[in-house]
Design a protein around this nucleic acid. Sequence first.
DNA 1: GCCTTGACTGTTATTATATAACATATCATA
DNA 2: TATGATATGTTATATAATAACAGTCAAGGC
Lengths: 163, 163
Amino acid sequence: MSDETAAFCCPDHSGAAPAEAILAAAEDKARARGLRLTPVRRRTLEILLQAHGALGAYDVLERLAAEGFGTQPPVAYRALNFLVENGLAHRIRRLNAFTACTHPGHDHRAAFLICETCERVTEAAAPDLSKALGAAAAQAGFTVERVTVEAVGRCRACTQARA
Amino acid sequence: MSDETAAFCCPDHSGAAPAEAILAAAEDKARARGLRLTPVRRRTLEILLQAHGALGAYDVLERLAAEGFGTQPPVAYRALNFLVENGLAHRIRRLNAFTACTHPGHDHRAAFLICETCERVTEAAAPDLSKALGAAAAQAGFTVERVTVEAVGRCRACTQARA
DNA sequence: GCCTTGACTGTTATTATATAACATATCATA
DNA sequence: TATGATATGTTATATAATAACAGTCAAGGC
Ligand SMILES: [Zn+2]
Ligand SMILES: [Zn+2]
Ligand SMILES: [Zn+2]
Ligand SMILES: [Zn+2]
């Protein structure tokens, strides 16, 4: 799926990664909610954070296996699903991949911006979006529970690089 | 591009889909744009329309094969991709499935409402959504090209049934 | 202490989804 | 009718995800 890790993790790929801060926040959250952020799970989150982009389950698995964790798909899928269910990571369906949540401190409805040039994923807060969708859904008598928003386009860095 | 559509094929799953009308519209569109709506492609669209919901590629394939078309995955994937690329169908990523476009007459940004009880999919026109997303994306310097919006929740029929 | 219980981790095996590569057939049109 | 482009079909393979089950381990009741 994707290649190597960079030490940055930020909305527009322009600044230093608050990876440590995010990890710390995840630990706080886990403590507060009684979640068990076990070694595989924690390491999986770290792997996602270091990747600076979305990673496929098998990419994650490869790294976990290399570090002495289990070598079979369920190991990665279980850790990833745990993170997703607890708001510490997100699943990017268009890419069949996962990415660390960049602001795990609170529940949110996020939109994902997928650059088709560099393949990196940015998580954007988009509160208005829920509203707009809620209205459209209400018209149809539909009650919305969860929403996935994934946009494909071009990130700032790639736009500038091409200009 | 529009907002005036009767956005819902069958909001509460209570009426028959206007399949013939949609199919006719698809043929008009194909003629107008010089698309080749060949037998497999046309039949694939019909299959989607008759399904009243999203179908997986292998489900479509099964039906096609039973009718004398090819029996191998690429047959279904090619027809489905053709339909998607030309706005006659949509891919529902959350379900790994495809659904006929219920208003193929014009380009649109649609949102999909997926009922987690009956698993049926409704296509809702949601023009405001693009705006809201565009704003959020602009903040990050991101240029949006295509957007996927998929909501999971409960449709009117299922809500009423449970009440 | 020790036993039960439930959550977690790991395994093997299988299922599900999607594409690559290539041969044949059909269509457009010159 | 020849010719190049498009479409259809095949075999084979790649990629993604889950099922089912066994061993581990720590917490809480006795
Ligand atoms: Zn997030
Ligand atoms: Zn980019
Ligand atoms: Zn549509
Ligand atoms: Zn329903």
